Simulated scan of single mutants.
Amino acid sequence: MRIVLWSTAIVVLVVLVGVVYEQVGRYRAARDFPAPGKMVDIGGRKIQLDCRGSGSPTVVFEAGLSVDGSLSWSAVQSKVAAHTRACSYSRAGLMWSDASDAPYSARQVAQDLHEALTRAGEHGPFVLVGQSLGGLYATSFTKYFGAEVAGLVLVDPSHPDQVARVAAFMTETRSLRSRIAVWLAWSGLLRAAAPSLLPQAPNQTARDSQAVHAFAPKSMVTQLVESDATDASLAEAGAFRNLGNRPLVVLTSMAPYTEAELRGMKITPEQGKQVQAIWEKLHEDMATWSSRSTHRLLPNAGHDIQFDDPAAVIDAVMSVVETVRADRDNGSH
Rank of each mutant, 00 (worst) to 15 (best):
G124D: 09
W96E: 02
Q77D: 10
T139W: 07
T142D: 15
M95S: 13
K79W: 08
A82P: 04
A106W: 01
E115Y: 04
A86L: 13
A86S: 15
F141Q: 07
P103V: 07
H83K: 14
A106N: 06
L71G: 08
Q108Y: 01
G134C: 13
L71M: 12
S66Y: 12
D98I: 05
V109S: 14
A75G: 01
T142N: 08
L117D: 01
S78R: 09
L152H: 10
S132D: 05
P103F: 14
D101M: 05
G64D: 09
E115K: 12
G69D: 07
R119Y: 11
Q77V: 07
K143P: 00
F126G: 05
A82Q: 05
G69V: 10
G130N: 03
Q77E: 07
G135W: 11
Q77T: 08
V76D: 15
Y144L: 07
P125Y: 09
H114Y: 12
F141C: 06
S140N: 13
D98Y: 06
K79F: 09
V76Q: 09
G135C: 02
A150S: 11
G135R: 04
L71W: 11
G69T: 06
F141D: 03
A110G: 10
A110L: 04
Y144H: 14
A102I: 00
W96V: 01
V109E: 13
L136S: 14
Q77S: 02
V149K: 01
S132H: 02
Q108W: 04
S105F: 12
L113R: 08
V109M: 15
A81T: 11
T84E: 10
G64P: 09
G146Y: 06
A99E: 13
V149L: 00
F126I: 02
G146D: 04
A120K: 00
G124L: 12
S70P: 10
V129M: 02
A120W: 02
G93Y: 08
Q108R: 15
G69W: 11
E148P: 01
W73G: 00
V153T: 03
G69C: 12
Y137H: 09
R119M: 07
G121V: 05
S100F: 02
A120T: 01
L128D: 00
A92D: 14
F141L: 05
H83D: 13
F145H: 11
D112N: 11
P125E: 10
D98M: 11
A92M: 13
L136E: 13
A99C: 01
A82H: 09
R85K: 15
T142P: 06
Y137D: 08
S97V: 04
P103Y: 09
K143E: 05
L71V: 10
G124N: 10
F126W: 05
S66E: 14
R107K: 12
S132F: 07
D112T: 03
S90N: 00
Q77I: 04
K143L: 03
D68V: 03
A106G: 14
V109F: 14
Y144E: 11
L94T: 14
S105M: 04
W73V: 00
V127Q: 06
A92E: 15
H114V: 11
G121H: 01
A138F: 09
G64R: 03
A147C: 08
E148A: 08
